[in-house]
Design a protein around this nucleic acid. Structure first.
Lengths: 140, 140, 140, 140
DNA sequence: GTGGTCTAGACCACG
DNA sequence: GTGGTCTAGACCACT
């Protein structure tokens, strides 16, 4: 199961953050058709936010046709995996890359430190995600 | 002078959009120390928004030490940005680092590619700023 | 709960008065980590001023790391104040130091008396905060 | 002659700062009846502010009867010296003392550092004021 | 209910 | 003209 992270103070509302992460997960192949998402109550508990907030995210995704909520069964991914090309992937994250570089410059953080911070955060996330340390073979 | 643009519907509030554009302007070298910004009323008129909204953006930049507002004179880009400790620098860019790492992970972009993209963007920005490639000798 | 008071005609703007009162409340131990402040609307009603004015005060305190505002929850005194470097600390109190020295000089108060007054006031505050006289051992 | 200092960003308007400093000077005996103040143009030049601002301060003091402006002659102190008792002096600067102590606590500056900063600033001012290093004997 | 943003005015202080 | 403060509303987002 995908693990989510949510930033309370972010300008992007929490429910949109969830929407986005699930979309990214689908785009990146981490989530495929038929995959089951955690119940909104469950996810809310994990993220320590209100269940209604998660519900709102699921509703949004449902409206977009990316997932389907089935009474008494759960919530499932509908979207085609739509494998993105490498270029498309890079394009997708590029705005954030640019923003980070710009922020780093303004703050006076050098490229070296920046890369270090990136690696550090990457490690931290891996541990959080469940202990995979190398190239993980995901199977459904 | 910088040209500003603002997107009303954006999840990022208008005043933050302005903050970012000015920060980027400084980062990109389009705005240098001593440069004068348009008055908040003037900019508000140009952008067709309320003056207070622009002022809020200027206040934010002022707090961060990027600009200085002087009564009866105007608003100026600050000469020597207030020095921050290394910890504070990292703390400041951390949210974006986390976000980028998360996006990359979900989208299926590996750490290597990510770092490469970062370096690439970093180089691009440098060129934009005037071609300095290393420690630049500033003369006034 | 703290009781607030505001003087409309004061040279110190209302929102700064609020900032100072809350800061003093924290300094004096009347406000501790985790304590909830009245909502900005509520406080505005009590003080008979515009909600935005209180919000501006809260924003200022939030920026300084003294409080945290959480959507839908309320506003709270922060647990562990953001650590500042020694230089920044001194930088922050410097204006008041300068002002005091200047006032004392002009009023004809000598350095010795000034330091004595400072020590006296410092002791008084400590007692107010609960009687700790040295390094206090905090337990939770 | 008294030397003045002015803080542009202060909540107290510059012209009020000047008023206050002259009042303090009179209260502290640094300025006595008949003493001549610098012309407003002159003082404005020294403080690097607009002459109108100084004029405003002089007008204020004139209205209060503390000084008298005489066409073609200059501006002179009128007020009785009114020597303050030590207690009165301390009372006068006490609010600022309290404020400084409170700020220092909040900022995490210890008493020791605080006193050191005070001494440092005191020295700096002395040099600025014209090089007196010990108890200065002032004569009119 | 909470905080977050925005508007369209107003008046003061400084130059 | 500039910035600095304040008001009295409004709507949105989250719990």
């Amino acid at each position: 199961m995908l693990s989510f992270r949510v930033i309370p103070g972010d300008p992007l509302p929490i429910y949109r953050q969830i929407v986005r992460q699930i979309e990214d997960g689908i785009a990146g192949g981490k989530l495929g058709p038929g995959d089951r998402l955690p119940s909104h109550r469950e996810l809310a508990a994990v993220l320590v936010i209100a269940p209604l907030t998660v519900k709102k995210a699921y509703d949004e995704l449902s409206r977009r046709g990316a997932i389907r909520m089935v009474q008494g069964q759960g919530t499932f991914v509908v979207d085609r995996p739509t494998p993105l090309s490498e270029n498309e992937k890079m394009e997708r994250i590029r705005p954030t890359v640019r923003r980070l570089v710009s922020e780093a410059y303004l703050t006076g953080v050098g490229l070296k430190q920046l890369v270090a911070a990136l690696r550090h955060e990457h490690q931290a996330m891996r541990k959080e995600r469940g202990g995979a340390t190398g190239k993980e073979k995901k199977k459904k």
